[in-house]
Each structure stands twice: as C-alpha cells, then as structure tokens.
Amino acid sequence: MSAALETALAYHRAWTGGDLDRAMTYVADDIVCDAPAGRIEGVAAYRAFLGPFAGMLRSATLLAAFGDDETALVMYDTETTLVPSAPGAECVTVRAGRIVHSRFLFDRVPFDAARRRLGETSRP
C-alpha cells in the first residue's frame, strides 16, 4: 500500500469511527482544505469544519481508495442523522505522514433540503 493511501485510510477510519482526536493526528497543522463552502486553513479550522459532520455520522461505507506516494483519493458513502445517504470524496496530499492538502467533495443539496424540512437555517 502506498504511503499516502495508508495515511488517508487511517485518517478516514479514525474520523468515521468517532475518534476525531486520532484523525487530527494525521492532519498537518497548516493543512489547506478546499471544500464546497470554501477554503479552510489550519488544523483548528479544519477540525471545526469536520467536527459537526463527524458528530452526526451514523455509519460510513468505503467505496474506493487509490493512492501513490504523495496523493490519495478516498470515496465513501455516509449515513447521518440528517440524511440516509451522503456520498463524499477526499483527494489528499500527504507529506511526512500528514495530510497537508485536502480537496473535500460532497453534495450539500440533501443536507440543505433536510434542514429546510426541519426548519433549521444554520449549517454545521
């Protein structure tokens, strides 16, 4: 298994398993994440971004994972308290065993629709 893929999968297993503290050990202090909501910089901001989603996670199913020495792509489907199926993908760059960049893709539409049904206006 490639170095980047090993790191990406360890990170994925940690946060989808409910251990956000462990997941953050795979993330560089100066991570840059490009997500649907915009750019997130730094490990504290990244944790604040991921934490609410991880908190509503019920289960995750790994769909595919590929990688080389520096880049890995992990695609998965999640079940959350808001929606029964929320597919996502992360393409990460890894250096020295830590994720330094993440391109985080997911569809916000099902979450927005669920929140409207519940009368919520804020996003985690």
Rank of each mutant, 00 (worst) to 15 (best):
L73R: 08
R116I: 09
Y46V: 04
M1I: 13
S102V: 13
G51V: 04
V27E: 06
D34L: 10
W15R: 12
P87F: 10
T80C: 01
V43T: 09
R58G: 05
R39W: 13
T16R: 06
V27Y: 00
A54S: 13
T25F: 09
P84Q: 10
S122F: 12
T71R: 14
L118H: 07
T7K: 03
A23Y: 06
Y46P: 00
A8Y: 12
G119K: 11
F106C: 00
A44M: 04
D21T: 12
L57Y: 12
H12P: 09
A3K: 10
A60R: 07
T121R: 13
P52K: 10
S59Y: 12
C91D: 04
T71A: 03
L62E: 08
G51P: 07
C33L: 14
V27N: 05
T25L: 05
H101I: 03
A10Q: 08
T71N: 08
R123K: 12
A23W: 08
D19T: 08
A37N: 02
M75V: 14
A45M: 02
D29G: 08
S59P: 06
V83T: 02
A28R: 00
A4I: 08
V32A: 03
W15K: 13
R98G: 02
A60W: 14
G97C: 05
A4L: 02
T16A: 14
A4R: 01
L73D: 07
E90L: 03
Y26E: 01
H101T: 12
P124S: 08
C91A: 14
L63S: 01
F111V: 14
D107L: 06
G18C: 12
D77Y: 04
R123A: 15
S2L: 13
E79V: 05
P84C: 02
L82P: 09
